[in-house]
Amino acid sequence: MTVDLTSVDAVLFDKDGTLLDYHATWMPANRAVAHALSAGDEGLAARLLARGGYDPESGRVRAGSPLAAGDLQDIVDAWATLLPARLTQDPDALAARIDALFIRHCVPTPVTALDALFDALKARGLKLGVATADSEAGARASLGPFGLLERLDFLAGYDSGHGSKPGPGQALAFCDAAGVAPERLMVIGDNRHDVDMARAARARYAIGVLTGTTAASELAAIADAVFEDVGFLTV
């Protein structure tokens, strides 16, 4: 399918694996959080990573796994049965601790010069948003250093009140906030959850990129088009 930017008024980006290189950004953080929770138990840390979707042989996280596509609660649920009772007796405290650890250890690695990309898109009159499975606080912490927060018309995490992917809530909330019809919306992501959200919201385009955890063949089977990264927007 040919992607025609003149047929859209808004672009909604996934964050991790789309604006930020997933493995460069999150594998160091995943390891650090797993080791912090395991208190030096290397075996437990390895089991936590594996339960989250990490494959030590390939060094990559499996597409669709909790660490790749889940929100904080998905990760907490995946790890809780492996953790000692002293950590799991208060689920809310455990979730807050894991979220704080991820924010502390995340060192975001952008896939391109994001400020220049966003400026170019804004110059075309496009509304820009981010919809992520991360918390809103986590999203602000990882995107803020690149000057993106002031360039965005919308930002939503799983805890922003619009639901989680693959439901349409975040995409439809962006359309409402931006005053854009869903059929004039392009959604860009690295995961099936992003494509499913776009379809559920009846967006014009569901675009896949290869800077995350999903193989090109898998994305090509479900997305309208697949590109190496978001740089295709400025070609």
Rank of each mutant, 00 (worst) to 15 (best):
D115L: 06
S160N: 09
P168N: 07
D153G: 13
P110A: 09
K127M: 13
P110T: 10
G161P: 05
A120P: 00
A113V: 11
T132Y: 00
P108Q: 08
K127H: 15
D90H: 10
F154E: 00
S135E: 08
L152T: 04
A100Y: 05
G129R: 03
D99E: 15
G125D: 14
D119I: 06
V130K: 00
P110K: 02
G161T: 14
D159S: 10
G157H: 03
D99S: 11
S142M: 12
Q170W: 05
S142R: 09
G129K: 02
D115I: 01
A133W: 00
G163H: 09
G144H: 03
R97V: 01
F118Y: 09
L121T: 02
F146G: 00
R151A: 09
S164C: 13
T109M: 12
I103H: 00
D92G: 13
D99M: 05
L101Q: 08
A133C: 10
G138E: 03
L94T: 11
G157V: 08
L149P: 06
P110S: 09
A137M: 11
D159I: 04
F146Y: 13
R104F: 05
L149M: 10
A96C: 12
K122V: 07
G167H: 14
L155I: 14
K165H: 11
G144D: 14
K127A: 15
